[in-house]
Write a protein that binds this DNA or RNA. Sequence first.
DNA 1: AAAGGGTGTCAGTACTTACTGACTTTTTGG
DNA 2: CCAAAAAGTCAGTAAGTACTGACACCCTTT
Lengths: 196, 196
Amino acid sequence: MGSNRKQETSEKLMIAAIDLMSEKGYNGVTTEEIARTAGYSEKTLFRHFQSKQKLLEAAFEKYHYGEEMRNLFHQHLQWDLQEDLLMVCNTYHKIMQQNRKMILIAMKDGEHLPGFREATHKHPEQLKAFLTDYFEKMLQKKKIIKVDPEKMAIAFLYMNYGAALGRIHNDPSFTTVYLEDFIKESVFLFTRGLTP
Amino acid sequence: MGSNRKQETSEKLMIAAIDLMSEKGYNGVTTEEIARTAGYSEKTLFRHFQSKQKLLEAAFEKYHYGEEMRNLFHQHLQWDLQEDLLMVCNTYHKIMQQNRKMILIAMKDGEHLPGFREATHKHPEQLKAFLTDYFEKMLQKKKIIKVDPEKMAIAFLYMNYGAALGRIHNDPSFTTVYLEDFIKESVFLFTRGLTP
DNA sequence: AAAGGGTGTCAGTACTTACTGACTTTTTGG
DNA sequence: CCAAAAAGTCAGTAAGTACTGACACCCTTT
């Protein structure tokens, strides 16, 4: 398999690009530095990807896990507030953790990743719609008190979004408090706040 | 006052630097571009600040509002959960909004702003300690149920942190839902979830 | 009118960096 | 062992960019 080796090189280059760009940003890193980090010469980088921009785009295509967000929607809802919220939390944080370097790049250099700017808006929007719908149905089932479902969805998601970003940025809060404990406590709070 | 004009020029240059760097990052903008945006020649920029780096540092010193976080600690607590949480939210979001461009720069180019990296960890840590302390005292007063005060503080702050970042990034959620409404609803939820 | 502070212009330096071409060397599979 | 594929070397280009120096031009104040 001649193409096996070629692919391996490409992957190493893309991973080096992601690592370095997530730290220093697109403009903060040179093609030379990326290639050396991956263990190759700069020339090889340009032979595989024609430009720095295309390298990033290829890396994004290969190493972003946008689709997995959809899995969440297909998970089985138990219509038990605590259980369902826990499931949403766990799935969400797993995806955020997988994508953390990409998220950093997108925050630093959104302009260079048109696809990502879109994704960072689209996916949370879908998630918000999903949760809003869930709260509405729970309201119909009289399993939660009368609240604005959309605002509750936003509050819940932002809490997890904030926590995920904190973890990505190595917030010292997560050195003493573990994510799982945090999730349990916060879901408990939401459950108690919403249960009739 | 000859120095009045000088100061005015410096301010315009610093503001242009903040505007552009918050969009494109430190390395994404040139000194020429900054000067032109401010309405001056590149030479003037270097006459006022000796280097690009020093320009950013001066801008940071002048236009960051770190001290205001301390005001929060001196505000009068009413020992009424809902009222106090509302006060914390409002103060927090006000500060985050004032600092939004600085926050964007810090996220994109933390390496160029050693002072900010520190601030983005120190201030939230103080805030967390403040809120944890508050919850502990409310617990002693038997005004809230038995929960882990630290985790509650983290949950509350992350919710607001996430919301503040969403607003900074023009999250479409805030085109339909206003911040104030969101704050009210989320504080209501926390209050109901914590009140005995 | 004179002086001085602030700014513009312009040419130029020194350095970096994305990217190329020609050629050689190494690695791999048949 | 041979041929092709992949990687390295090296020299170089073109463009960008932070930053400087010399000089001229306002504008304000006295």
